Simulated assay, not measured.
Amino acid sequence: MKSFPARFLIGFLLLFTGPLADAGTRPSVVFLSPDDSRFWQLVAGFMEAVAEDLEVDLEVQYDRESHRFSYLRMAKDVLSREEKPDYLLFMCKEHVTESMLRLADGAGVKTFTFNTDVPDAARASIGMPRSVLSGWLGHLSPDNIAAGRSLVTLLGKQAEQLGLASGPSIPMVALSGTLDSSATKDRNGGLLAAAVQQRSELMQLVYANWSGALAREKTEVLLKRYPETVSIWSASDGMALGAIEAARNAGRVPGQDLLVGSVDWQPEALDKIRSGELLVSLGRHFMGGGLALLLLHDYHHGRDFDDMSPDYVFRYKLEPATRDNIDQVQRIADPENWSSVDFRQFSRVGETETAKAVPDPDAVLDAITGALARQETGSVASRE
Results as ranks from 00 to 15, higher is better:
64 R>M: 12
196 V>I: 14
44 A>I: 03
173 V>C: 01
214 L>H: 02
284 R>D: 13
278 L>C: 09
303 R>F: 05
371 A>N: 07
314 F>N: 03
193 A>C: 07
197 Q>R: 12
170 I>E: 01
234 S>Q: 04
249 N>W: 10
358 V>D: 05
192 L>F: 08
328 Q>T: 09
268 E>H: 11
148 G>P: 02
381 A>H: 13
108 G>R: 07
28 S>T: 13
246 A>R: 00
306 D>I: 11
228 E>Q: 14
153 T>I: 06
332 I>Y: 04
335 P>M: 09
349 V>Q: 02
334 D>Y: 04
240 A>M: 07
340 S>V: 05
272 K>D: 06
289 G>D: 05
62 Y>G: 02
266 Q>R: 10
240 A>K: 00
210 W>E: 07
53 D>H: 04
360 D>P: 09
160 E>A: 14
258 L>A: 00
337 N>T: 11
196 V>A: 14
336 E>N: 13
316 Y>I: 00
318 L>R: 04
271 D>A: 15
248 R>V: 09
353 E>S: 12
343 F>S: 00
193 A>V: 08
203 M>Y: 04
171 P>L: 06
87 Y>P: 06
18 G>R: 13
330 Q>T: 15
174 A>H: 06
231 S>M: 03
131 S>R: 15
318 L>K: 03
105 D>A: 09
241 L>A: 03
67 H>W: 12
49 A>S: 15
215 A>M: 07
45 G>I: 03
329 V>E: 00
297 H>G: 03
382 S>N: 13
349 V>E: 00
282 L>T: 04
238 G>S: 14
184 T>Q: 06
375 Q>M: 12
260 V>C: 05
42 L>F: 10
181 S>Y: 03
81 R>H: 12
330 Q>K: 13
9 L>F: 01
95 H>V: 11
379 S>V: 12
201 E>R: 06
189 G>C: 06
208 A>T: 01
103 L>P: 07
183 A>Q: 01
34 P>M: 09
40 W>S: 01
230 V>N: 02
229 T>F: 01
214 L>Y: 04
159 A>T: 08
325 N>S: 08
199 R>Q: 10
334 D>H: 03
10 I>T: 11
362 D>H: 10
294 L>A: 03
81 R>A: 14
370 G>I: 14
234 S>P: 01
182 S>N: 12
340 S>H: 06
9 L>T: 13
374 R>Q: 11
35 D>I: 07
134 S>R: 10
179 L>Q: 14
21 A>W: 09
273 I>E: 02
225 R>Q: 14
84 K>A: 09
207 Y>R: 02
166 S>I: 15
187 R>F: 02
50 V>P: 06
329 V>W: 00
156 G>A: 15
341 V>C: 07
284 R>M: 13
70 S>Y: 10
125 S>T: 10
311 D>L: 08
55 E>D: 14
108 G>N: 09
268 E>S: 13
338 W>M: 10
181 S>C: 11
204 Q>A: 02
